[in-house]
Simulated assay, not measured.
Amino acid sequence: MNELQITELNGQRVLTTQQIADGYGTTNKVISNNFNNNRTRFEEGKHFILLVGEYLKEFLHSQNLGTQNKIRKLYLWTEKGALLHAKSLGTDEAWDMYDILVDTYFKVQEEKQAPLTLDQQIAAIATGYGSVKEELVEVKDRVSDLEENAPLSAGEYNYIGSRINQRVAEVARGYGKITREQRGKLFKDINQGVKVVTGVSTRTQLRAKHFDTVVDFTNNWEPSTATKMQLRQMSFDFEE
């Protein structure tokens, strides 16, 4: 086991198909067939990394294998990938070698692996190791979405209603004495504005993400020109 060549990709130890075959006492073809027969069990980025194109060329060059131009794709197996192969093969030799790999080959990696540089992280995302990061981002986005789309709390809902009442009263004072019908026009105008800026049809559909928008709109709300003209006309009719 001490003679096993160290194979690393972006600071993480991996094994080639040949290394697994040699270690498990079998052939490349058996490993390939084992992979194809259990394809649904193997997850790219978790159990293996498939290198092709420029990434393959860079890897072969880093391993001083740049002259092997006939290679069109290369599978590299992670610790979890090596475990799946051991499970699938089920031989004593495979299990014995897997134990050795965990206790020496991959354990050394855990003890000595340094944090990835920014370039290495970018490369890792491109080659599959970024799947963990992508999953974390996805979870974070889901949590943010749940938080933003959560219904308003009772306190927030009551505050919006109270602030709308206050703002209507502030604007109404500018018209002097107004009737209940005129006040209703003001409420209709401001509520219509809330629907427009939030995209909801009723106030009960407001969500946490709408709170700041509604408060800001309410604080700066002024009746539309049409509503103002209606109020003036209603005042004239009231005086007559």
Rank of each mutant, 00 (worst) to 15 (best):
A114D: 09
L84N: 05
Q63D: 12
F48A: 08
P115Y: 12
A82P: 12
H47E: 10
W77V: 01
K80Y: 02
V132D: 12
Q63L: 06
Q63E: 15
I100E: 14
A82T: 07
L76H: 12
I49R: 03
A94D: 00
L56H: 10
Q120Y: 08
M97P: 01
T127A: 03
G130A: 13
F59N: 00
L89D: 03
V52S: 11
S131M: 07
E135W: 15
Y129I: 03
V139S: 10
Y75L: 12
L65E: 07
L74M: 15
Q109S: 15
G53W: 09
W77T: 02
L136S: 10
F48N: 01
N64L: 08
K133C: 04
K73A: 14
L84P: 00
G81W: 04
W77F: 02
E43F: 11
L84W: 02
F48S: 03
Q68A: 02
K46N: 12
H85F: 10
Y75E: 02
L76D: 04
L84D: 04
H61K: 14
A86C: 00
A94E: 06
G53H: 10
V137L: 14
E134F: 07
Q120R: 06
H85N: 04
A124M: 02
L65N: 14
E138I: 03
F106K: 04
W95A: 05
S88Q: 13
E79T: 07
Y98F: 03
I122A: 10
F48T: 03
S88E: 07
K46W: 02
T104S: 10
V139D: 08
L83C: 03
T117D: 06
E58R: 13
E111I: 06
M97Q: 04
T127L: 11
E138N: 09
Y75P: 01
L83Q: 00
G66P: 11
A126W: 08
H85K: 02
K80N: 14
E110D: 15
Q109C: 13
G81N: 06
F48K: 05
I71K: 09
T91F: 01
Y129D: 01
T78F: 02
L74C: 01
Q113P: 01
K70S: 13
A86H: 00
E54V: 09
E44T: 11
D103P: 01
E79F: 12
T67S: 14
